[in-house]
């Protein structure tokens, strides 16, 4: 079962919720955790995995064999992104415009184009002290396209999930999504069984929640809501969720001591163990299936 934790608005507590959910789940389940916020990956700061493996990822960009090229211009014609230009007796490739679709290589009548990996980031993986199989995508500074990294990250499978004594365990995947409501969020959500939306009770939280709910509905993914920092702002979020038939699965009140502990890098259930039962209950409701 794949659960995505998303929000729309940044800083509402996605990572706070996803890391605590993972720690509670690992008491009984085999957990795989993917930090999908490749621009600003932070879950490792809380889960402290030993990242013992790293793989470079990127997109396949064209390289033109100048001896074989006849400057016919077909590659430039098929490229939708103007990443190849043919002028006179020269063929120019602009790696940062390339989306890695492969059309230029396929369409070249001289087979003068090969493809090479242009590294845009890495995938780090390892295991946390509790035995969570952990991986994160990290985009290199200055790069623009995170989605290809995300696509590779979602394919990552740990060498083996840690064995547990006793009964066979459920396999759970928890994905920490990036903020926003554009392509990286959609790519994170694709293939999810359900989405947990973390919001805060302010007009910003509500506005951005609506954007992600629209994506979840379009993809047909059932959604539930966690209201974080409950007590600040107003309860327009609660009212809208009730109107829209979105279940509110957990409310986490604004408490300064929690904010301080999280600021220092502790997870919520570690800093405030009284939240463990609430997270266990949240998990069971998710696994049983949220009813939209």
């Amino acid at each position: 079962m794949r659960i995505v934790v998303a929000s729309g608005k940044g800083g509402t507590g996605k990572t706070t919720v996803s890391t605590s959910l993972a720690q509670v789940a690992t008491e009984r389940d085999a957990v795989r955790f993917l930090d999908c916020d490749v621009e600003a990956p932070n879950a490792a700061l809380f889960l402290h995995p030993v990242l013992d493996s790293q793989r470079e990822v990127g997109i396949r960009v064209p390289r033109v064999d100048a001896d074989a090229c006849t400057y016919c211009g077909r590659c430039a014609e098929v490229c939708q992104f103007h990443a190849i230009a043919v002028v006179g007796q020269k063929t120019l490739v602009f790696d940062d415009l390339c989306h890695g679709c492969g059309s230029c290589a396929w369409m070249c009548p001289e087979q003068a184009i090969s493809e090479t990996l242009s590294v845009t980031g890495v995938i780090d993986s390892g295991t946390t002290p509790e035995g969570i199989a952990f991986a994160q995508g990290v985009m290199n500074v200055g790069q623009t396209m995170g989605v290809p990294i995300l696509r590779e990250l979602k394919k990552w499978t740990p060498a083996r999930l840690p064995e547990a004594p006793g009964a066979p365990r459920r396999a759970l995947e928890i994905l920490d999504a990036p903020p926003g409501a554009s392509c990286p969020v959609v790519e994170t959500l694709r293939g999810a069984d359900l989405v947990l939306l973390v919001t805060e009770p302010t007009p910003f939280g509500l506005h951005d929640l609506k954007q992600v709910v629209a994506i979840a509905r379009e993809l047909g993914i059932p959604a539930g809501v966690v209201i974080n920092r409950d007590g600040i702002g107003d309860d327009a979020v609660g009212a809208w969720c009730a109107e829209s038939g979105l279940p509110i699965l957990l409310r986490i009140p604004m408490e300064r001591r929690i904010a301080e502990a999280i600021a220092g890098g502790r997870t919520l259930v570690d800093a405030a163990p009284e939240y463990r039962p609430g997270f266990r209950d949240l998990l069971e409701r998710l696994v049983a299936g949220v009813n939209p």
Binding site: A76, A85, V86, L97
Partner: peptide, 18 residues
């Protein structure tokens, strides 16, 4: 033609002028 390009307008315009 670069005017309506979603990216790489400069490349497209330069090729066009060439």
């Amino acid at each position: 033609p670069g005017l309506s390009a979603s990216g790489g307008a400069g490349v497209q315009a330069a090729q066009f002028v060439a």
